[in-house]
Design a protein around this nucleic acid. Structure first.
Lengths: 146, 146
DNA sequence: GCTTGACCTCAAGTTGGCTTGAATTCGTAG
DNA sequence: CTACGAATTCAAGCCAACTTGAGGTCAAGC
């Protein structure tokens, strides 16, 4: 079995050694043992790191990511919470596609200001309306819609 | 025409007054005038804020968002840059769907550790590959990839 | 006329997620 | 043997995006 030291993990994932040490410090990944002080990682860590970066791309904190995939290889969170996270992501996907469409429209639209462009307004307004989304918000309750 | 003061904007967008003041400070939104010190916003600001929160959900910085939709209602960035941003978002959408699938799998899979579950591994490994809708690909692995 | 509540400003503090720098330890190549 | 490069620890620093707190203004209601 082959072990990787931190430099190689960094090279193969694009994540800097300092970040990897930080992940280990917070228990998000772990090295198997030390070879003369140097951390030795299993190849599985590459997959784990991929999950981490995907989770980050989705806007989750490292804390949440740890909950989803586990600090020691298994999720801390109950099934329904995981399903809710997945729903959350699906919701975000809807938003992102709206954003993408809007951006392409903005790139090509000739209207002097997009606030005056009906297509633009429709694109943006449309974006939230898919399937009665309920956002978990911390602030005061939302009285109306935008 | 109706103007909104900061509390109403906050209530209708879910964004706190302090954040709205911050957005104004950095020039991301603007209030039309003051009514006895109090900021008065046009209803258009609701749409702008929606764009901002969408952009944030996509992982863009406020700086980038300002570039996309303009500090004064028009994009600062040239068309091709905007198209690239849109492509970037589409790529992220791919990643998010992989993550969502993976999460649902993790929620339901009975394997003792998902590192040992081939379905899990396939889901994660699949996720980064560019090249549009590539479903179940079984080709040889490229050296140096995760 | 006093209180209340919603707003104001400005400076300072907070959080997450790293990065940087200094001082040190190895193993290998020359 | 010495130098080099790649790793190590630890504390401190950094940035974005806000939040908090102190102290103040204003209009309306009792």
């Amino acid at each position: 079995m082959k072990f990787l030291d931190i430099g190689e993990v960094a090279a193969r994932t694009g994540v800097k050694p300092s970040a990897l040490r930080y992940y280990e410090e917070i228990g998000l990944i772990e090295s198997l043992f030390r070879h003369c002080l140097r951390r030795q990682f299993s190849v599985d860590v590459l997959l784990q790191i991929k999950l981490i970066t995907m989770g980050q791309a989705a806007g989750f904190s490292l804390e949440e990511i740890a909950g989803m995939f586990g600090r020691n290889g298994r999720p801390d969170l109950p099934r329904d919470v995981l399903h809710r996270k997945a729903d959350e992501i699906d919701e975000k996907i809807q938003q992102l596609s709206a954003l993408s469409d809007t951006l392409r429209h903005v790139a090509d639209c000739k209207a002097p200001s997009h606030m005056e462009c009906p297509t633009f307004r429709r694109l943006v307004e449309l974006s939230g309306k898919r399937g009665r989304v309920r956002l978990k918000r911390k602030g005061p309750k939302v009285a109306g819609e935008m």
